[in-house]
């Protein structure tokens, strides 16, 4: 060290104080931008699965996000017959089969619109398309619609709670 004078020492001492302060303030700034506890706690949506009609796409709301609920028609079920990928996403409540997914395009988060005549979803933002089972039909979306954590309780389905059916889907890489 050339500059081993008192001035050099004071410079280093200030540097140390400033570094501690800088790290501390960065932590505080980062934490200030975190989602608030009230936001995180706002949480669980219970759906009564007996009220849905076949072939009618209903949009529910969970954590501010749209949730697609589609009770599958026989036509949709027939289409899924030889497609294990589509079957893996199927959610069975009682005797009824459902497509339940977060209604945000996996590309950049626009809401795809359900097309009744074609039984599919089309995203207006960048032209992505999904089948009635929630699989990608046309790029750019990188993967099928995400399935929110759910737990089945008889005829009720709780969004936000992790049930065995959803855990299986997650473990098998069906959803994120």
């Amino acid at each position: 060290m050339e500059e081993n004078s008192r001035r050099g020492f004071m410079g280093k001492a200030f540097g140390a104080v400033a570094a501690v302060g800088a790290v501390g303030s960065l932590v505080a700034m980062k934490r200030t931008w975190d989602p608030l506890p009230s936001v995180k706690a706002a949480g669980f949506t219970t759906l009564d699965m007996s009220k849905y009609e076949e072939g009618v796409m209903v949009t529910e709301k969970w954590r501010g996000k749209p949730i697609f609920v589609l009770k599958k028609t026989l036509a949709i079920m027939a289409e899924e017959k030889d497609k294990p990928e589509a079957q893996a996403r199927n959610i069975k409540v009682g005797d009824a089969n459902f497509m339940i997914a977060i209604g945000l395009c996996t590309h950049l988060g626009c809401i795809p619109a359900f097309r009744n005549d074609l039984n599919d979803f089309k995203c207006a933002c960048h032209g992505g398309e999904f089948t009635a089972s929630g699989l990608v039909q046309k790029a750019p979306p990188p993967r099928g619609l995400d399935i929110p954590p759910f737990k089945i309780n008889g005829n009720k389905l709780v969004l936000g709670e992790v049930g065995p059916e959803w855990q299986t889907m997650k473990d098998n890489g069906v959803t994120l």
Binding site: P66, H107, I111, P112, A113, A124, H126, A139, P140
Partner: peptide
């Protein structure tokens, strides 16, 4: 938050870079 407009596009001055994002996979 539960309804996306039919077409989402940015203001005209961002369109050129938006169009570079759009045709490819994510």
């Amino acid at each position: 938050g539960l309804k996306t407009p039919t077409h989402i596009y940015p203001e005209w001055y961002f369109l050129w870079s938006y169009e570079i994002l759009r045709p490819f996979n994510i």
